[in-house]
Amino acid sequence: MHIRSLMLGAAAIAGALATPAQAKQGDVLIRLRGIMVAPNEKSGSILPAFPGEKVSVDNAVTPELDFTYMATDHIGFELIAATTKHSASGRTGTTGSLGKLASTWVLPPTLTAQYHFLPDGKIRPYVGAGVNYTVFYNEKASGALEGAVGDTKVHMSDSFGLAGQAGVDIQLNDRMFLNLDVKYIDIDTTTRLSTTAAGVQKVRVHLDPFVFGVGVGFKL
């Protein structure tokens, strides 16, 4: 009888250890993801000198850190921190022949309110919506552009927009989980190119990137 009791106790302890950690009210979740920022850009013309000539923006991959505070078992608030570097290139005509026109670093802190559907489950999907403020910094003209028009100063206006997301947490052990996440962020900017030979040129770009992420998370 004593041996049976010990076996039952050991089984209970093993079961408890195997039980997935649950995202509960008051928990703080930390995720470390690798993300790809893929602009879904729509560009206006480079005006006034190059009507009809537009720009494209490349993808970027970077690590990202985010924090989620669970206000209730189902409602969480996530803040992400990451920065990426992107290049803008001409598509056609004169600017297209130059290729890369400018580069910039992008800092897009995004706050979303999330609804977690199955906080007690091993697989926990969620959706979210929120706001984003994007800062463009360290903007630089390319060597090809400055070789064609002389010294060029680049300025990109900051952006405020909405964001949406969907994702899932998959429990790996009592504290760690795998995370898959995708976001859509509304980012618009006006780029101002102040050049020696061509004067001031402006182009309006709707970047609107998808942000695809995969990583691991921990419950504090």
Rank of each mutant, 00 (worst) to 15 (best):
M1I: 14
H2C: 11
H2W: 13
R4A: 15
L6D: 04
M7R: 11
A11D: 06
A12W: 04
A16L: 14
A23E: 00
K24S: 15
G26N: 12
V28L: 14
R31I: 14
R33I: 04
V37L: 01
N40V: 09
S43Q: 06
S43Y: 06
I46N: 00
P48I: 02
A49V: 14
F50Y: 10
V55E: 13
V57L: 11
D58A: 07
E64R: 01
L65V: 08
F67Y: 05
T68D: 07
A71S: 11
T72W: 01
H74M: 03
L79Y: 05
A81M: 09
A82M: 14
T84A: 15
K85L: 05
R91P: 08
G96R: 01
S97G: 14
S97I: 04
L98Q: 08
G99A: 06
A102C: 06
S103F: 01
S103T: 02
S103M: 02
W105P: 09
P108R: 04
P109A: 08
A113I: 15
H116V: 10
H116W: 03
F117I: 02
D120Q: 12
D120L: 04
P125L: 01
V127L: 02
A129F: 15
Y133T: 11
Y133M: 06
T134K: 09
Y137C: 09
G143N: 13
L145M: 03
E146N: 11
G147W: 01
A148C: 05
V154D: 00
V154T: 09
V154R: 02
H155Y: 08
M156E: 09
D158V: 07
D158R: 08
D158H: 12
S159Y: 02
F160A: 13
F160L: 10
I170R: 00
N179H: 09
N179Y: 03
K183D: 01
I185W: 00
I185H: 01
D186T: 10
T190K: 13
T191W: 09
S194M: 12
T196L: 10
A198P: 07
K202G: 13
V203I: 07
H206L: 09
P209V: 07
F212T: 13
G213P: 05
V214F: 11
